[in-house]
Design a protein around this nucleic acid. Structure first.
Ligand SMILES: [Mn+2]
Ligand SMILES: [Mn+2]
Ligand SMILES: [Zn+2]
Ligand SMILES: [Zn+2]
Lengths: 215, 215
DNA sequence: ACCTAACTGATAACTATTACTAAATCAAGC
DNA sequence: GCTTGATTTAGTAATAGTTATCAGTTAGGT
């Protein structure tokens, strides 16, 4: 029998193709769950693996800790924005000879290559030029900015009151919230650009964050 | 005060430079521990991070799940052997223009690039040509082949008796060994090429494996 | 309709890395 | 040389992402 056709597999492939992006398993899970609320994250992983084995999609090893998946399987390269971490396609012409994906390099029989560029995407370049003001509008990089919950506001406020970088437990102490919960909130706020981490383990409120709690 | 000079840091840097390889934190930990048995893995991680921040070494993001570190910091690229996973340097001439590490690509301001080739190293090419026979000699890729322990032999034998791919608990049942221990043994044997995994979760003995238990 | 290998959701386990803590250590200033 | 305090350490817990396991479900060939 080998490979079966299941509704889970179909939706996973369909949604990855529809997105036209380079999604992580987790991101795709969140998308697929809207259509199929009882699907498991393990199923998403299992099928992404299987689909890439059969060549319908491509596993993408880009920098960062999360693997991404690509519905575009013909050979191309990628560029990662160092600020918003968006991954986009790069099609380089006339590079095949100079930067070969097959052939021999230093005695190795080359079967493939991976080329990844790092830089600032046009959106982030533009955003960095905006001196101040409508920071709450977001970075324009597709990361939809949601309303802040009361707890998120509490965390941000505590961070604003705290002068200098602080660790999660400082915020837990200041807000009275559970430390574990605070860690999660900080991660969310960091994704939204309201918090950054100047040093590992230490967090601080950003200009965007200050604007957000003022409004 | 900022950065201090500690014996741990010195040895870590020294051993990475001496190795002239692209070691993982764990590999380096094992090397360093020979000179400083009480050092902690966390210390190795911390110092590799710090040394790469100060520019004395380079963090290397190659494929595979483990990060590697490079004592060679001047710009160069890498080639990974798909069989033995060895990482070696590649210095490509005349590529800087065609395959730029700075400049503009599709509107992005490029700050860097990563180029990684995949292929078979000369050692593995040679090994693959050997038709049969001295498979127990190893792949010659530096992964020293050790003697098999009695438990490892038990696992291999059980796998040989078991026709077709089996899961870890099949082996546990057949050998009477603890399932957890069996999982570990299988992982080891797989690294040594005596076991492979045709399907996820399922394992089978390889030709090399059969030779190993005959001897 | 029946059968069974393939698949699923749920959850545990695993691996690589990072965070935390109390104790130890380095080096600047006396 | 001694004091002092910021850094660093060993040990360990916690985390994130992924993979393994398992009991029950389903696709699809007969
Ligand atoms: Mn792509
Ligand atoms: Mn190198
Ligand atoms: Zn961006
Ligand atoms: Zn090799």
């Amino acid at each position: 029998m080998s490979v079966r056709r299941t509704s889970q597999r179909e939706i996973i492939l369909q949604e990855l193709q529809k997105s036209r992006q380079h999604l992580t398993a987790d991101q795709l899970f969140r998308v697929v769950r809207k259509k199929m609320p009882r699907i498991s994250l393990a199923t998403v992983y299992r099928n992404l693996e299987l689909l890439s084995e059969t060549g319908l999609i491509a596993k993408l090893e880009v920098s960062g800790r999360q693997r991404r998946f690509d519905s575009e399987v013909v050979g191309h390269d990628h560029v990662t924005c160092v600020q918003c971490h968006r991954v986009e396609n790069v099609f380089l012409e006339g590079m095949k000879e100079d930067c070969p994906s097959h052939g021999v390099v230093d005695g190795y029989t080359i079967k493939g290559r991976r080329l990844e560029f790092f830089g600032l995407c046009p959106r982030c370049q533009k955003k960095n030029k905006v001196p101040k003001g409508d920071a709450t509008m977001g970075c324009g990089c597709g990361c939809a900015k949601k309303m802040l919950t009361d707890e998120q506001k509490m965390v941000l406020q505590a961070m604003a009151d705290f002068h200098g970088p602080c660790v999660a437990k400082d915020i837990a102490a200041a807000t009275g919230l559970e430390a574990k919960l605070v860690t999660g909130k900080i991660a969310d706020l960091k994704k939204q650009g309201f918090v950054d981490s100047p040093v590992r383990c230490k967090y601080g409120i950003t200009a965007d964050g200050r604007t957000a709690i003022k409004g």
